[in-house]
Simulated scan of single mutants.
Amino acid sequence: MARETEFLALDDSAVRAVTGPNSRHVALIEDAFKVLVEAPGGGVSINGGARDRANAKQVIQTLADRAAKGATVTEADVRAALGEVRGGGRSTGDLMALPIGKRGAIVPKTNAQARYLETLARCELSFGVGPAGTGKTFLAAAYGANLLRRGQVDRLVITRPAVEAGEKLGFLPGDLNEKVDPYLAPIWEALNDILGAEDVQRRRDKGEIEAAPIAFMRGRTLSHAFVIVDEAQNTSRLQMKMVLTRLGEGARMVVTGDPSQVDLLNPRDSGLAHALRILRDVKGVGVLEFEATDVVRHAMVERIVRAYDADAAGKRLPADLEDTGPA
């Protein structure tokens, strides 16, 4: 197939984002599509076959669009864009962005993440389910923080089952926050990354951000709040029904979890799987299911998840995951 060169005009900031530190981003694109990408000034040139050029151009445009929205472009973004193009997906560049990230705007990395943000915006009760590393908890926290900063809700309420402590936290030292914080570490890490640790602490002191284990939700009505129910696969059916019915006037809720990682003594009692089954078609409820291909943490995490999925399904390791090198 004849190789030709195509030039894509970009401003300097977009070129830097596409190129990456030490040209690492360009190297990933070149390796994925067997093209040569150069930055002669005023944009980038792409040399290769017609299909490879088109694919590389789509990835480059997606990265440039992310940079234009104020998002920091990382290696994970490049890998996610490559995965989307290989899978025949649409570019995420023209979709929703949350302009609140401490290090730049938060923009979906994959089509699944884009649909997830659309679900959060459209539905009063949303479910984001799937393997670790797909961004379901981070994006829920980002969306809730965005609503809080814009004054669209009065509080951000975060709850999670403390399965390891059997919901009995009295033996742990400190006040309620100190007892619960270890179980909510992923949420606090996400919020600190989004808002900054000082802003998070200030809002916690004012009661604008509140965290409590599932057991402490009983008897409450959560009005004008954005509620995140994290690690929901470890709620029982009764706990899930209880927390879902806490919704009050002007409130929205997102339930996140991985149905394959149930830590309950009886996994069949998981309230998440039960809720998904009976609520999926209820008006006002939205469900987004992530897959292993949506993992955006590290390329190795996707391979690990796919290997475990193959084992659970009784299948052999996919060919692209096998080590075919010398022993």
Rank of each mutant, 00 (worst) to 15 (best):
K168P: 09
L265V: 04
L169W: 02
W188D: 14
D205P: 02
T245N: 13
R252W: 06
V163E: 10
P213G: 00
G166V: 07
G250N: 01
E164H: 10
R237D: 05
E208G: 10
A225F: 12
A185V: 14
L169Q: 00
G207V: 15
A212E: 01
E189K: 05
E189T: 00
P213C: 06
A197C: 12
A275R: 02
I187N: 03
V254P: 10
T235N: 01
L222S: 08
V262P: 01
D193S: 11
P259M: 07
G257A: 03
I194G: 09
A275G: 02
Q233V: 11
V200Q: 03
D205R: 15
P259D: 05
E167Q: 12
A185Q: 13
T245A: 08
L191Y: 05
R277D: 14
L195Q: 09
S223C: 06
L191I: 07
Q233S: 13
A190G: 05
A251G: 12
M242L: 08
V255N: 06
G196T: 09
T256G: 13
V254H: 05
A197E: 13
P259A: 07
G196I: 07
R246L: 10
N266W: 09
D175G: 04
R277T: 09
P213S: 11
K206C: 10
F216I: 04
V200W: 06
L195T: 03
M253Q: 15
L265E: 15
E198A: 07
R268M: 12
Q201G: 01
A212G: 07
A162E: 00
F226V: 10
G166L: 02
R246E: 14
G271P: 00
V262Q: 02
D175Q: 09
R204I: 14
G207Y: 05
L176G: 07
Q201K: 06
A211I: 05
E167F: 04
L276D: 12
P182T: 08
I228H: 00
R277F: 11
L272H: 08
R277Q: 13
Q233K: 11
A232N: 11
D181R: 10
H274E: 14
S236A: 07
N177P: 04
S236W: 09
L247F: 15
G271D: 05
D269R: 01
E210Y: 03
V254Y: 13
R246H: 12
K206S: 11
K168T: 08
Q201E: 06
L264I: 14
L238A: 14
S270D: 01
P186M: 01
Q261T: 01
P182K: 11
A162S: 04
D269S: 04
N177M: 13
